[in-house]
Write a protein that binds this DNA or RNA. Structure first.
Lengths: 161, 161
DNA sequence: GCTAAAATCACCCGAAAGTATGAGGTCACT
DNA sequence: AGTGACCTCATACTTTCGGGTGATTTTAGC
């Protein structure tokens, strides 16, 4: 339990330790951070903003490495509607950035589920050749050569999940 | 050794450095402190930690489906070097559950990266036929028919990431 | 040392995937 | 009416995948 936690959040913990060490260092060196009247609020706000941004940056960085471990999850009944929209929007942004059409997105999604071109054709009620055309265009836009690479890259780019 | 450490924790280190830079900057600018001695540092540290956590939370929220929530606990441990083993152990558990050999795992991993059998053969310094054999066995054990399905299923089972 | 599992490789063959090219049809915008 | 983006489908061709089968060699456990 604890071990899993440590595994998962080792970067965060290390960060905490770094922060602690730094503060101790500052104290030892007897730093005095002095402030004039009203700028205090601005200072706090600045720190807050800065660290929020850094937190986001840190998290997005740490999402990628393959060192991830299965984490304990609990399912919740309450849906948080706010979550869905930004996600879709993010997909939309990436989608447009690459110029992927909606049909190509559908093909890509089904590809990621491990369906064959024939099965995808069946799902979308189009011919096999059409699916091939879409996937070819898809590969070109994603700058890949194989469907497996397409799925891999698309997941990296957060286009699919 | 040191290099590996730096590489692994470069984000945390860079983060610490940013923090240090910020504090040094403040000192250089000769801000005047109105608070009582050391409480200011603690306050700033608290804000920094809080908002970093907020940033990480925000980022993870945006990147993950809303149906799963992470269990978070705040723990501060002095020793961190326990990290590497448990990950391998978990993979090992899943691996044994399906009876996947280590070589098959390597093939599976490279598959997930979108490599062709030929490329995998090159990476592992074996022949194309060997890779085919491995992947065939792999598909049978995973009860799938295509490599895309294998990758999809393996990710579901948390065998790969 | 024997044995079982794993790893290695080969050959054949059909299926699927992917490339290249062309072409017709819809829709929105100008 | 023309343009461009998208979707659709086709044919022909090459490459890759995957199944089936059999074989030899390592490796690890008893």
């Amino acid at each position: 339990m604890i071990v899993k936690f440590l595994q998962r959040y080792r970067h965060a913990l290390l960060y905490s330790l770094s922060l602690a060490a730094l503060l101790i260092l500052l104290q030892v060196m007897e730093y005095r951070l002095l402030l004039i009247s009203h700028s205090f609020e601005f200072y706090i706000a600045g720190v807050a903003l800065l660290f929020t941004a850094l937190g986001i940056w840190l998290a997005t960085r740490l999402m990628r490495p393959a060192t991830k471990i299965r984490i304990e999850t609990i399912t919740v009944e309450k849906e948080v509607p706010v979550m869905v929209t930004p996600l879709a929007e993010l997909n939309e942004i990436e989608r447009q950035k690459l110029g992927l059409s909606s049909r190509e997105m559908e093909v890509l999604t089904l590809m990621a589920e491990g369906l064959s071109n024939q099965e995808i054709a069946g799902r979308l009620f189009v011919s096999l050749n059409t699916v091939k055309t879409h996937s070819s265009n898809l590969f070109e836009k994603l700058e890949v050569k194989r469907r497996t690479q397409a799925v891999s890259k698309a997941k990296q780019l957060q286009i699919i999940h």
